[in-house]
Write a protein that binds this DNA or RNA. Sequence first.
DNA 1: TATCTATTTAACTAACTAACAATATAACAT
DNA 2: ATGTTATATTGTTAGTTAGTTAAATAGATA
Lengths: 124, 124
Amino acid sequence: MGTVTKSLNHKNSAAALAPVADYFKMLSEVSRLQILNSLKLGEMNVTQLSEETGLGQANLSKHLKILTQAGILTRKPVGVSVYYEISDPMIFDLCELVCDRLTDRIQEQADRLHQLKALSTIVK
Amino acid sequence: MGTVTKSLNHKNSAAALAPVADYFKMLSEVSRLQILNSLKLGEMNVTQLSEETGLGQANLSKHLKILTQAGILTRKPVGVSVYYEISDPMIFDLCELVCDRLTDRIQEQADRLHQLKALSTIVK
DNA sequence: TATCTATTTAACTAACTAACAATATAACAT
DNA sequence: ATGTTATATTGTTAGTTAGTTAAATAGATA
């Protein structure tokens, strides 16, 4: 039985992690980040979003559906057009965390480059 | 010129968002989350990780390379085996944020279900 | 009702990638 | 040197998905 529970562990943890992976997958497309970025200051309809992001309309519509189904956006039809709005501002916290980390990494690389330069001067 | 700068805006923002999207993409695989989860309590070598996660060796090796190149893991060879370690614990903050949000969503759905039940009782 | 406009959906293609099998490399031991 | 064990790499296949075009839907207006 020990073997069984052990082998099941993989599947269990995998199953538990799947929703998390899916959530990250939603944020792993530049187009969707563009959409979220555009909506940061307020709601917009699809036409406005298309102008703002440069995305094709059908493509945009598909991304909007994905983000809405994930609970990140709220959809509200107004007359003939449809407005979308951020319903979960937490995503900006996520993006900021990642941005900060990426900035750190770039800084570290710059530092290493600087050290390397100093070293080459000594070698001369 | 206004038109030019406007059309460039898309590409600019897209280029700026690309690294962020890539970062999220790294975290969007269950296998990689399993690896990170396994390393949460300390370093492990590849064989141990394979047992822990149930992932195939070649597959695991590829994921480890991706995580290492992204600066999330540190690689240290010890004798004939190679140990991997979390080098950026910030990812756990990210995961926790997402987990909390997902839990909230499930709770909301449960609440809605509960309300629906109450309603159906009234209808009876 | 007919028509126009905004959005969504469906069908398709192209590109990407996870997983697997086979092979290669690297470190240690005999 | 040879063999053995641990890890990495390569080639391949199957599944997924972003983007595009064309057709469908829904609301507003004449």
